[in-house]
Structures are given as C-alpha cells and as structure tokens.
Design a protein around this nucleic acid. Structure first.
Lengths: 226, 226
DNA sequence: GTCTATAATCTGATAGAC
DNA sequence: GTCTATCAGATTATAGAC
C-alpha cells in the first residue's frame, strides 16, 4: 500500500489550496479519534468516569495507551467529548416531540425516538445516567440551560393539551419523567431485562413490539387509548 | 467516661451467661459496621464500585482507613454487604404488590412503596442501578432466581387481570418495567430533577403530590382512571 | 503519527505499636 | 479496638526513540 504523503489516490475530498498530506493526516486523526470516542463511551458506560482506567479504553480501542493521550490530552477532556456526543443525539431525539401539535402523534413520535436512542446508543444512555448519579458535575450547565428551556417549552405544550381537554389533567413533569425513565430503562437496565428474558436480548422484532407497548402505556396514562 | 470492660452501666441487653465485655465489644462492632455500611452506600452510589476508593468511604464514615479494613476485610466484601442490605429493602417493597387482588389497589400500593423506597434510600437505588449498568456481576444470581420468580408470579397476576377484563390488555413486563423505571427515576436522577426544579429538591408535600401523579399515570396506562 | 519506558501519584491492604 | 506507617501494585500522564 502506498503511504507517501503525495499519494492522493485515497484522498477523496482534498480541499483546494490544501496539500494532500495535510488532509491525509487529518483523516488519520479523525478516524482514530472516532475509534477512541467509541471505545471510551463503552468503558465509561460500564464503570463510570472515576472507575474507568485510560488503559482499559486503549485496550478496547486496540491502541497503545500513549496514543490515546496523544489524541486526548487528559481523561477529563476525553470524557467531556464523549458526553458532548451523547448530548447532541439526545437533543436530536428531543426535537421529535414537536412532530405534531396533536398529543397522540407528538407523544408517539417522541417515545419512538427515545426508544430508538436506547436501542442505538445504550452506552451513551448509561454514561448519561452515571454522570447524573454522580451529581452531574459536567452536565450541570447543560441541564440548567438548554434542557431546562426545552422542558419548560414542552411543559407549556402539555398544559395547553390539558386546557384544551385533549388529554387528562396530568402533571407535565411527572409525564416527561415517566417517558424518560421508561425509555431509558431499556438501555440502562438492559442486563436485568436480558436475565429476566431467560438470558436472551430482545431481537429487533421484540423491541419493536415493546416500543408499541410503551407507546400504548404512555398514551393510556394521559387518557388516549391507542 | 468509664471504659473498663466490667462497667455494665450502658449495657442494656446483656445476654444471660455472656460476659458484659463481650456484649460491649459486639455493640461497638455493630455500631461501626452500620456506620461504615451507610458511608459505603453513599460513596458507591456516587462513584460505583470501581470508582470508589476505600479511603473515601473511611473519610465519609469519619474513621481511619485501617479501621474499615478491620471490619470489612476487602472492598469486595463491603460492597456485597451493601448490595445485600439494598436487596432486602427492595424485596420488602416488592411484597406490597400483593396488598390486594384488585389491580387498582395493588398497583397503588406497589407504586407508593417504590416511591417511598426512592425517597428513603436514594443511595441504595443508585448503587443498584450502577451495579446493573456494570453488567450485574454481583446481582446476577439474585436477578436470575429470586427476582425472576417474583416477576413471573406478578406477570401471571397481571395476565389474569387482563383476562378478567379488569385492565386493558398490556404487556406485563412492559408495565412492570415502566413502574420500576419511573419510581426509581426519582432516586437515580434526583440531581437532574432538582436542577429542573430551579435548584430546589422536592419537599415532603411536593413528593407526596408527585407520588399521586405517578399513581394516576400508572393506573391510566392500564385503563384505570383514578 | 506510533509505541516502549518511566516518572509521579494513588489505591487496596497490612503490620505493628498503642 | 484504634491508628500511624508502609508496601506492592495500579493509574495518569509524559518523554523520547523510531
């Protein structure tokens, strides 16, 4: 395999006026950073921030520990970046709440997105949970600003639904927390669910059925039979 | 303060045929073990098993680290005992499911007991959650035996309620997981709830109201308006 | 950009005087 | 039963050859 800096054969998106070897180096960096971030999310999910050794992450990523510290100066910086990635995806799921003005469709879309998040990013969900159980030292800012703003807006929407008689008069916070807790449970407590399911994880079909059941329970909780 | 082994003034329940100094020693041991277990539950809840240093626990308990190792030989043994205490209380809450044969009262009693557990033992709830997120290495036995038996029995009860038309036809596992997740959320994600509540923890009155809301949502989810 | 070797610190656990 | 001192091993992070 040619590896000279001038070989541009594998450089597909070299920017104009930027030497190819720069792009190549950037590609390597991006690939390795992604590798490390994925490994870190997995190990942090398993043992938390304090309980995780950078050496474990390096092993999981298949790299020497020194390389990890080359790409991420400190464990704290790496952890913060892992959290940031999770946060981005969490907010993307959050946006589905506004799919529709009608409670039935809005709740259905939101629960579906949250269940999908739990399915696709179980490690991310657990890192989030552990961070909050540790007192949320790194998430405090986000929780108190972006999340709070989002929650306040959704609380107003739910209150409007109640006013308009579209749903039963429920406490908006209690409803949101129930949705969060229930959907995240399938990621955070996956191991418990597996053991109670005779050692087998839910397959795709089973997970889709379960998602429908969760939607049914949530809709029922506000008086909307599905 | 008299500290001679023969001073029985503070020995209130010395057993017949057992020297007083023995009882005294036993009292000291029990008191210190309780102190250490409480401190350990708190620190394990914060940082998990791997993330917790025995020194932190000693500081929290107000004892030298060596004393901790005198009462609990290893960190693993101490952790196991902490888990056992939580498990006992968890099962006590579980027993309330059988308060009544009618779904409305049974679910109300169970949700109330679980919410009470979250209120009284938030650290225990978090230790439990962290243990499961770590793959439940120490709880695997319990989950696969006692808990599974309990769940299977409750699943049968819920199925009977459905057959008898007392509740909507819901998936029993989905319902149980929703109850667990929602009630435990108030312990595990307390910090998030506080931040979203303008930095104030729910007071006793607010918590009772929230408990009623959770009961209402759960009853509604199975078609039982409260 | 990779990786071995190592410095500096922390952690679990014990020894042994009191 | 208490507590200081300490050891062996692990951990974060860096140095420096390639």
């Amino acid at each position: 395999m040619p590896t000279t800096p001038c070989d541009r054969s594998s450089v597909v998106d070299a920017r104009a006026g930027e030497p190819a070897y720069r792009t190549r180096k950037k590609d390597i960096r991006e690939a390795n950073e992604a590798l490390i971030l994925a490994a870190a999310e997995k190990v942090f999910a398993m043992h938390g921030y304090q309980g995780t050794a950078t050496g474990q992450i390096a092993v999981e990523a298949g790299l020497p520990k020194a390389n990890l510290h080359y790409y991420f100066k400190t464990k704290a910086i790496l952890y913060r970046e892992v959290l940031q990635h999770i946060l981005d995806d969490w907010m993307k799921a959050a946006s589905t709440f506004d799919t529709c003005n009608e409670p039935r469709e809005a709740l259905r879309a939101y629960v579906t997105a949250k269940m999908e998040f739990s399915r696709q990013r179980p490690f991310g969900s657990r890192v989030w949970a552990r961070e909050i159980m540790s007192g949320a030292p790194m998430l405090e800012d986000f929780l108190g600003t972006s999340l709070k703003t989002w929650v306040n807006a959704r609380v107003r929407i739910i209150r409007r639904w109640v006013r308009e008689g579209k749903i039963e008069p429920v406490d908006p916070h209690a409803l949101l927390y129930m949705i969060w807790a229930t959907t995240q449970h399938y990621a955070d407590f996956e191991q418990q669910i597996i053991i109670l399911n005779n050692g087998k994880a839910l397959d795709d079909r089973g997970y889709r059925q379960r998602t429908r059941q969760v939607i049914r329970l949530v809709l029922g909780s506000v008086g909307l039979q599905s």
